[in-house]
Write a protein that binds this DNA or RNA. Structure first.
Lengths: 333, 333
DNA sequence: TTGTATGCGTTATCAC
DNA sequence: GTGATAACGCATACAA
């Protein structure tokens, strides 16, 4: 593989000149510039980004840690990050990691990313790792949290207003006449999920509705576990007349259980889910849902991070709140 | 940020010893090892992966280029890559790039990845870029194609047997009594899509069924475009009695159009789609589909790549074919 | 059992 | 307008 030295020799100039041609960092006459360009082309020279990073002390790479790229919310989010971050000065790239909601794995991944000297970090924190992340916030590269907040860490944050969005959602169920409203909750140490349950509790209390013990059914945040939990929820007696699910996996799992039990929605039971689906309009039942844009959150996180990396911004941490929308369809009755 | 030198000084040993402790690359007495470890902990030392990469001439990072991480097939695939590649020697990481099916962008992304000196490449090629990829196959790092083949490039390949899978699918529609079978085709320069249409044509011909002009309706590979194309397809006269869609986006777009037109499936028109959906069982209509596992393809690609990177394998390019399954539900009539 | 010193390919400082 | 060269932080060949 050709190096800058080979190019210099071939063009009959010094390595300094070659470097300056590639970076347009000082004046070079057209004529020598041409000679350099020709040499580069003939040798198929590609500058070594590793050596460059070492010397410049920046890599042009950021790390993104999400729990599961398979969750449409996160794949949207990652796309938002990528499309946005590419636009910046030296074409920032993204190293993607799945934490699988596992604290220890998250720490390991962050260790590797730090070793790779990423210029910045976007994280949907799995929960826990508080001390670790606080330390990273102090000594590490710029960092932004997305989807989930960690107030004690010095980092920008992008979320939706989960409490309010859930209040609107549950209020809607109540307005539709439902009273035995249960929750299918993902077991995550994530502020977003906790806030959604919090919104539910507040709204129920306000409406003078009680939350029976056993009405908040939990499971791991994946379809299979949610399916199993959905079964348990449907076996409750008396059966709830509506369910608020805390994310898309829970909705999907519940639908499976419903289907299996031969129940129909909304006739037998109403459903309102957090997270919308691309296909929601085209299939039955049409699920009433709180829509939040993963793409927007990712894009905003990328913008904030880029501003920190380029030192355009250096103030105290900011918290951006992205809007949500309750999309009323049929499943809420 | 502490360097290996700081650690050496603090521990009262040479940098060589520190390096050997970290890499377990030569014997060090327990006692000095302890001193080094303590110094590392106290300084919060993190080895500089960039300097290390420069010296060792490998980065422990691979590049993955897919067209759109938002497509569930690709997010599954990327997860398969990640989960598998992490298991190898030096915890390989993945830089993820979306080519958006754009030839020029793909080239640009590959250029950046090469500059970053990735140890290997997994690509779902957008099509075109033939000369570029051929050159990369010769001079570049190990490379594996996934989902789509490029026979003239020296690289391992992982795909499904798209022709056969489509034959089985179309045969099924014919067996169900459909004769006016149309295709909703994604406009991609991808072998996979071409092969699916090829399977359709062969099967129709074999069955003595004609393919009327206009029965192969094309659009860009995204839901909105497919929706528009679906409208055109449904306006055909006489209307086809079944549609074979070449991927998940096309299926979704068609369902939207169907819905909008007030048609029901399978009563008014049958549908069989390439690519299955996680939620297919729980919503109506239940779509009959050719299921292929993106995860498996990604995992296999990662294994092949890792074998090349570690030089465990150095033979001629191999082509692995992953199995598919026709899942018969209700939409096929 | 451990230490010294070279070089990986750049960029940037200083010199001319 | 261009060149020589010292760093960047590590791994390793060679020495002791």
């Amino acid at each position: 593989m050709a190096t800058i030295k080979d190019v210099a020799t071939k063009a009959g100039v010094s390595v300094a000149t070659v470097s300056h041609v590639m970076n347009a960092s000082r004046f070079v006459t057209e004529e020598t510039k041409d000679r350099v360009l020709v040499a580069i082309a003939e040798l198929g020279y590609r500058r070594d980004g590793i050596a460059r990073s070492l010397r410049r002390n920046r890599t042009g790479t950021i790390g993104a840690v999400v729990s599961d790229i398979t969750n449409p919310f996160f794949s949207d989010l990652v796309k938002g990050i990528e499309n946005t971050i590419h636009g910046f000065a030296d074409r920032l790239n993204v190293i993607l990691c799945n934490s699988e909601e596992d604290e220890a794995l998250e720490r390991e991944l962050l260790d590797v990313l730090m070793e790779k000297r990423v210029d910045g970090l976007i994280i949907a924190p799995a929960g826990g790792n508080l001390a670790y992340l606080e330390a990273l916030g102090r000594d590490g590269p710029p960092m932004v949290f997305v989807d989930r907040a960690m107030p004690s860490v010095a980092a920008d944050t992008v979320t939706v207003d989960n409490v309010s969005a859930s209040r609107v959602a549950v209020r809607h169920l109540i307005d539709r006449g439902h009273v035995r409203i249960a929750v299918l909750k993902a077991t995550l140490h994530a502020s977003s999920i906790e806030d959604r349950v919090q919104g539910y509790r507040l709204t129920m209390a306000e409406a003078g509705l009680s939350v029976a013990p056993g009405w908040i059914v939990e499971s791991a945040s994946n379809i299979d576990a949610a399916h199993e939990a959905g079964r348990r929820l449907l076996a409750l007696s008396p059966r709830p007349d509506a369910v608020f699910t805390t994310n898309n996996f829970m909705t999907l799992g519940l639908m499976r259980a419903l289907n299996e039990a031969g129940l129909s929605c909304p006739a037998d039971i109403a459903i309102l889910g957090f997270d919308d689906f691309q296909w929601a309009e085209a299939f039955r039942p049409r699920i009433t849902a709180v829509a939040q844009s993963g793409y927007q959150q990712g894009a905003e996180a990328a913008r904030l991070l880029a501003a920190r990396i380029t030192k355009t911004e250096s103030g105290p941490p900011v918290h951006r709140v992205i809007g949500t929308q309750l999309i009323i369809r049929e499943s809420s009755g």
